[in-house]
């Protein structure tokens, strides 16, 4: 096991927007983290990359173990040694992820120099090679360009190259393509998956696009309102979702054979942290909700690596 997140809770001020998160990632695995906006996907990413202090949050319970080391127990300095070198991070918005005043190449070079100890010349050669792998045309010229001269898709390729530069074992990608044109989204996401597979790097990909999950991921963790709804193998998840929320998300994927008007979405919205309902947090929107759901928090039932938290699991009915 490369990364093990165990009953992780995150608090910001008095609120606890993330509670009891549990899932793991094996070496070379692509794990999708899905859920609507506000379900805690990005917070999970920030917790794993150690960036919670930036938004004033902290891990209040649980552990994040990386190859057996609990990252939450490390000093900031020890923690930093993991960033870039063992864990790469791809931010949500490539438009602002690069320093506007520095040439692209310098910003990527510095990662190899810092983490792999390469001399400047070798670092640049490596940067150009990474750009080539990211299918950036004229990589030498791009290395000399400034960020504003690049398109969004191009910038995201650079950002991915930066994350790859430190030869990490895990890359955390926080909705790496949401800020991009639909046409380049698929390109970039497949490129990322391909590079990660070639290098046997594990990828934790945050997305709300279930079709991307179906195409690229090995495993999926579904989050809802700061808790785990379901963690499962991707095939099992799509074939037999356990949680009604997972079912609802799958039903939100448009299919060509759908009747006009059949695509409904999930009524309602994810509640804000202050308005989390009692019991199962999904109950106000759940078609299967009963009184039990309104009062009792469903336990996270674990079966091997899979788990789900629902009083009326769909899988029980499948039997």
């Amino acid at each position: 096991m490369l990364l093990g997140v165990d009953t992780l809770s995150v608090s910001i001020g008095g609120a606890m927007p993330l509670e009891g998160i549990r899932f793991d990632i094996r070496k070379g695995e692509i794990v999708g983290i899905v859920g609507e906006s506000g379900s805690g996907k990005s917070l999970t990413a920030l917790a794993i990359t150690g960036l919670l202090p930036l938004i004033g949050g902290r891990v209040s319970a649980g552990s994040i173990s990386f190859e057996g080391t609990d990252l939450t127990k490390l000093s900031p300095r020890e923690r930093r040694a993991y960033n870039g070198r063992r864990i790469g991070f791809i931010t949500q918005n490539p438009m602002t992820a690069l320093d506007p005043l520095q040439r692209i190449g310098e910003q990527v070079d510095v990662v190899s120099r810092l983490h792999l100890g390469l001399p400047p010349h070798a670092a640049r050669a490596r940067t150009v090679e990474l750009f080539r792998q990211m299918r950036i045309a004229a990589p030498e010229a791009i290395a000399e360009a400034y960020p504003h001269q690049l398109s969004g898709g191009m910038k995201q390729r650079v950002v991915i190259a930066m994350a790859l530069a430190g030869e990490p074992d895990l890359i955390v990608a926080d909705e790496p393509t949401t800020a991009l044109d639909v046409t380049v989204q698929a390109q970039i996401i497949h490129l990322l998956a391909e590079e990660v597979r070639n290098r046997h790097i594990a990828l934790m990909m945050i997305t709300h696009d279930m079709s991307i999950v179906a195409q690229l991921c090995d495993r999926v963790a579904v989050l809802y309102a700061g808790r785990v709804a379901e963690v499962s193998d991707v095939r099992a998840l799509f074939a037999h979702p356990a949680h009604p929320y997972t079912r609802a998300l799958i039903d939100c994927i448009p299919r060509p054979d759908m009747a006009r008007g059949a695509l409904t979405g999930i009524p309602g919205a994810v509640p804000a942290v202050a308005d989390y309902p009692s019991g199962c947090r999904f109950h106000p929107r759940c078609p299967r909700a009963t009184d039990l759901c309104r009062t009792q928090v469903p336990a996270l039932v674990t079966d091997g690596r899979d788990s789900h938290a629902c009083h009326h699991s769909l899988r029980d009915t499948h039997g």
Partner: peptide, 27 residues
């Protein structure tokens, strides 16, 4: 300080002094 590129630099393992000297002061 709250720009994405500072977050990105930090996520790649840059120290406070590096971020100050290479990203914040030049900008």
């Amino acid at each position: 300080r709250s720009e994405t590129f500072v977050e990105a630099a930090r996520s790649l393992g840059a120290s406070d002094s590096f971020i100050l000297a290479h990203h914040l002061i030049p900008n």
